[in-house]
């Protein structure tokens, strides 16, 4: 099973623990990853608010390269997933738009034929790899761990671009995976809300209020930790949790895991190898509870 790998900027920047953790678990699952050469940022929805054409052209460029590799695209970033899917939908439904974009790509000999279907690792585990295969590799079931899923926005909305009608199981994919790994799902209303990251530099107070609301809500329901498929959600929920806590005037102390880290823990990989020590919120109590102290 081989994929054109689109890691996204954050997995190699502000959340450097994500990239190696994803590589590790993919290797064990027999998922071969070949990085798209010189891939560029998707625009994260930020470029699109100013110049959609430029953003979409950069996405088409990545897609064209993956087509040339003859491989389906795998990403480990929900935001990348969402932005790629939205750009893809615009190009697929409007051949004139795609032709315009291809006229720009032609100068470097690229053409996007419109066949890409980028997929997040979360979906690939369920739809391509199969949960049986995942379960086979679970050597340290997460029994007794109460895990809150946090999807964020881009991997659940807009439903049209994400093909949710065709794949309704995507809406509960995180819960399915948590249960497969042996942990207990802590269901809470905030799981598909915004983490606040997109407005961090614009309205920090609101951004922190969102972090405080989601983390404390999960904590109050007895969560030991939260897991997210989105490194940007992770940045805010983990990196800014101390600040959000201060604004909330309440200590929450909720560890936030990246999706591949949760799977890696259940596969018996050490917390150290999965980069848990790089988190801002202390993950040690969680590791202890799992019997996986560093």
């Amino acid at each position: 099973m081989k994929y054109a790998f689109f890691p996204g900027c954050v997995s190699q920047g502000a959340a450097p623990e994500l990239y190696p953790a994803a590589r590790l678990i993919c290797q064990r699952l027999g998922i071969e990853l070949e990085e798209i050469p010189a891939w560029t940022c998707t625009g994260a929805g930020v470029m699109q608010e100013k110049n959609q054409l430029f953003g979409d052209t950069l996405n088409a460029r990545n897609f064209a390269k993956a087509e040339r590799m003859g491989l389906p695209i795998l990403t480990i970033c929900s935001t990348c997933q969402g932005v790629m899917s939205q750009a893809n939908l615009r190009m697929k439904r409007d051949p004139e738009y795609l032709a315009q974009i291809n006229s720009y790509l032609a100068e470097e000999g690229l053409e996007y034929k419109g066949t890409a279907e980028p997929k997040h690792l979360l979906w690939i585990l369920i739809e391509d790899v199969g949960l049986d295969k995942v379960l086979e590799l679970v050597t340290r079931p997460l029994a007794g761990i109460r895990m809150a899923p946090f999807y964020g926005c881009y991997i659940v909305r807009p439903t049209e671009a994400l093909d949710i009608e065709e794949h309704p199981e995507r809406q509960t994919s995180l819960e399915t995976l948590i249960e497969t790994l042996g942990a207990t799902v802590v269901d809470f209303a905030g799981k598909t809300r915004c983490c606040g990251f997109p407005i961090l530099t614009i309205n920090e107070k609101n951004s922190m209020a969102m972090v405080g609301k989601h983390t404390s809500e999960a904590k109050d329901l007895g969560a030991d930790a939260m897991v997210t498929p989105c490194p940007l959600c992770h940045l805010n929920l983990d990196g800014y949790q101390p600040k959000a806590s201060a604004q909330l005037r309440r200590k929450v102390d909720l560890p936030i895991l990246h999706l591949p880290q949760l799977i890696g823990l259940a596969m018996g990989i050490s917390p150290q190898e999965l980069g848990l020590q790089k988190h801002i919120m202390n993950t040690q109590p969680l590791a202890m509870k799992l019997g996986a102290a560093r």
């Binding site: 900027c9 920047g13 560029t40 940022c41 625009g43 930020v46 470029m47 608010e49 100013k50 950069l58």
Partner: peptide
Amino acid sequence: GARHTSAFTESVGHSGRLDE
């Protein structure tokens, strides 16, 4: 907000990726 979207676009436009 406006500075954020401009700085983002500049970073990606000049280097291909986001300068976090």
